[in-house]
Design a protein around this nucleic acid. Structure first.
Length: 436
RNA sequence: GGAGAGGUCGCCUAGUGGCCUAGGGCGCCGCACUGGAAAUGCGGUAUAGCGCAAGCUAUCGAGGGUUCAAAUCCCUCCCUCUCCGCCA
């Protein structure tokens, strides 16, 4: 469950409206509410009976210690009382377990209500909140010479930066092989991003496992919701991570922080594996949609009162990377029906790729409020000794590599077929230009 | 992969069927003592659910079983450590 039973009881209207805004069925909220009432009744009865049974058992021990015969009538009566309670407990607990299972099934289908400042509607209601950089044209006229920017796969083939055919041979389509300067570019981008996030933004670097267990996949909601998205190693019950969000957020599952430990801000590189089921035929050329790519992910654990501002900062940290790379981009505030089930507010960063003349999503920055934290039981003490409260979690790419690479190739390609290395990458690439 | 040892309240540890409703130490918090501190003494110190409250219920790695009653006995699984094997 993810929105919390207390909140369900306290503000069912807001939750019902939240479901409607996200295009989900609001009747689930009413069904859950009714089931929750029933659950509490059963729980009360069960607790009462358990108290009776415990009391009878305790009295048997006391009676025997006081000298009563273990087979005598006094003990027999107590034993019967305990057994009778036990029989009823069995019955009620079975009913209770059924109610809880049902309730949980309903609760996971209730979405996290969007923040009040999120536009209501489908993707047509998404708002462009800002753009940065020059949106380059495909056709270029410079110094009287006319040429046309090519799509990234042509630039890459020309400069031998990646090899999609051989990737398909050794693994399958959608598994690119980066070669020579292409491989070096991957390494440089990861290095540069981590350097900026740790050195300038004060985040702690994490290098997580690329596979997680079922409990972790459940924690961030990959199962059961998005099971089709993931590659699953059934023999060992492990899941290849679709994003570093999964291992990194789960780092603190079932933990309680002290207030002075927050915020905790991580930057993590990981490869990302996505089956992309149902996406066959879309973006089949180049590296815009692949099954394995690399990404630096930012994951924040914040005090509730700080999370609104933290999302703005998180988003701006992803923008810093695009700015350093000199890539034109825009920031979209996603509307309720386009933002996802668990997010309260989400910004997408789209980079301009002049070769394919498209905006490419390279980052998605979200505030989950306490929705994820509840599922994973990540809490903190507002004051020393105080009752633990849920933290707020946020995450955002900073950035996903494959599409960033595509934008770099298409933005920095030259008329002569070479590629200028963006200023910020030169110290990592060790060259100013990639040539044939 | 094999053999052995072990997983208890933040940490260490006691606990082999019923005053364990989990004891002790460390750490931490409060109070006392002090000019201030150390030392010392007293008290407090897990999480969740239910209840106006007193309190009740659950949790001793996880799950199941035996029993009137399980931290304790039985079964399955997970993890950690030591040794061996294999191996980047």
């Amino acid at each position: 469950m993810s929105i919390g039973l207390a909140r369900l009881r306290e503000e069912p209207e807001r939750i019902r409206q939240g479901a409607i805004d996200k295009g989900e069925d609001p009747s689930i909220v009413d069904a859950a509410l009714a089931l929750e009432t029933r659950r509490r009744e059963l729980l009360g009865e069960s607790d009462q009976l358990k108290a009776e049974r415990n009391s009878a058992s305790r009295q048997i021990g006391e009676a025997i210690r006081a000298g009563a015969a273990p087979t005598g009538p006094e003990v027999a009566a107590l034993r019967k009382a305990s057994t009778d309670a036990g029989t009823q407990i069995e019955r009620i607990d079975a009913e209770l377990a059924a109610a809880e299972t049902q309730l949980e099934e309903l609760m996971v289908r209730i979405p996290n209500p969007a923040d009040p400042d999120v536009p209501v509607g489908d993707e047509s209601a998404n708002q462009v909140v800002r753009t940065w950089g020059e949106v380059l044209p495909k056709d270029v006229t410079a110094n009287g010479v006319q040429w046309t920017r090519r799509p990234h796969w042509e630039v890459a083939a020309d400069l031998k930066m990646f090899d999609l055919e051989r990737g398909a041979k050794i693994t399958g389509s959608g598994f690119p092989v980066y070669t020579g300067p292409g491989s070096r570019l991957q390494r440089s981008l990861i290095d540069m991003m981590l350097d900026i996030h740790t050195g300038e933004h004060g985040m702690t670097e994490i290098w997580p496992p690329a596979m997680v267990n079922a409990a972790s996949a459940r924690g961030t909601g990959q199962i059961p919701d998005k099971e089709d998205l993931m590659y699953i190693v059934t023999r060992d019950e492990l899941y290849l991570v679709p994003t570093a969000e999964v291992p990194v957020t789960n780092l603190h599952r079932d933990e309680i922080f002290e207030a002075d430990q927050l915020p905790i801000r991580y930057a993590a590189y990981s490869p990302c594996f996505r089956r992309e089921a149902g996406a066959a035929g879309k973006d089949t050329r180049g590296i815009l949609r692949v099954h394995q790519f690399d990404k630096v992910e930012m994951v924040f654990f914040e005090k509730p009162e700080a999370s609104t501002e933290a999302l703005e900062w998180l988003t701006s940290r992803a923008e810093v990377i695009l700015q350093r790379l000199g890539l034109a981009y825009r920031v979209l505030l996603m509307a309720t029906k386009d933002m996802g089930f668990v997010q309260a507010k989400k910004y997408d960063l789209e980079v301009w790729a002049p070769g394919v003349e498209r905006w490419l999503e390279v980052s998605s920055c979200s505030n989950f409020r306490d929705y994820q934290a509840r599922r994973m039981a990540i809490r903190y003490r507002p004051e020393p000794g105080a009752k633990p409260e849920l933290v707020h979690t946020l995450n955002g790419s900073g950035l996903a590599l494959a599409r960033t690479v595509a934008a770099i190739l298409e933005t920095y390609q030259q008329e002569d077929g070479s590629l200028i290395v963006p200023e910020a990458l030169k110290p990592y690439m060790k060259v100013d230009r990639v040539v044939r």
